[in-house]
Write a protein that binds this DNA or RNA. Structure first.
Lengths: 120, 120
DNA sequence: GTTTTCTACAACCATTTGGTTGTATGTTAG
DNA sequence: CTAACATACAACCAAATGGTTGTAGAAAAC
């Protein structure tokens, strides 16, 4: 394991599920660049305010964004730690794959003992 | 952009959607470790063969796995390139965030011109 | 105070998802 | 050839998803 990740299956489900929508990914990029109120976010899309509100709620349940009250508006900001964890998970998969590749290499090295090279 | 990624929104949707299920993530880890036939995979889960077949189909549409015929069985192997791309996307988000952090730093540096340190 | 703005939330709807069973087809074993 | 095995695929179902409209409350503006 590259990094201790302590995420439950459900949490990982929610993270990837939340990322599996273009609008939500766009919201994430926007709030990573600069935190914004929900209505400011809603202004960027052609869907209803309530729809955007729901998208933000999905991202919030996945801990990809957090809301903070500021006066009458609720300002959304990105949660880079969760993104880092998700990236870490994917990197773990790569490591598994490399581990297998390594094992195959080792196996081949065993089959062709040192000093026996050259024979097919 | 860290790496040229040339994925459409729909493709990214499918990748994250496919990863948003514990069974499917488990299938990915298994076939990354060692390629397996669909029925061999199905043996590991308490759901029906058809259900596992559907999960594999979802992973295949996302290009996370590929099937190869071998006799009467269809052997599934993991597609590490797609995983790498997904990881790259998440790393891009981190970069956006770091970019903003950098911009804030620069802004602060402007507000407190050189030689004026020590105040606040 | 009244009005406007921003948010929350419920109810509803169409579509997708994740599962089932059943049937058909191709491939290997005897 | 026949039987067993591995896969494909359709039909069906309950639950979740992504959208809508409408109503209500809280905070700010006037």
């Amino acid at each position: 394991m590259v990094v201790e990740n302590e995420l439950t299956d459900d949490e990982v489900d929610r993270i990837f599920q939340a990322l599996a929508d273009t609008t939500r990914r766009d919201i994430v990029t926007r709030v990573l660049r600069q935190e914004q109120s929900v209505s400011a976010l809603a202004g960027h899309y052609r869907m209803s305010f309530a729809a955007v509100q729901k998208h933000v709620a999905v991202l919030e349940r996945a801990a990809l964004v957090t809301k903070r009250r500021r006066g009458r508006e609720q300002v959304v900001h990105g949660n880079v730690a969760t993104l880092r964890r998700a990236a870490g998970l994917l990197e773990d998969y790569e490591q598994i794959w490399r581990g297998r590749a390594r094992a195959i290499e080792d196996l081949l090295a065993e089959e062709v003992p040192p000093g026996d090279r050259g024979a097919q």
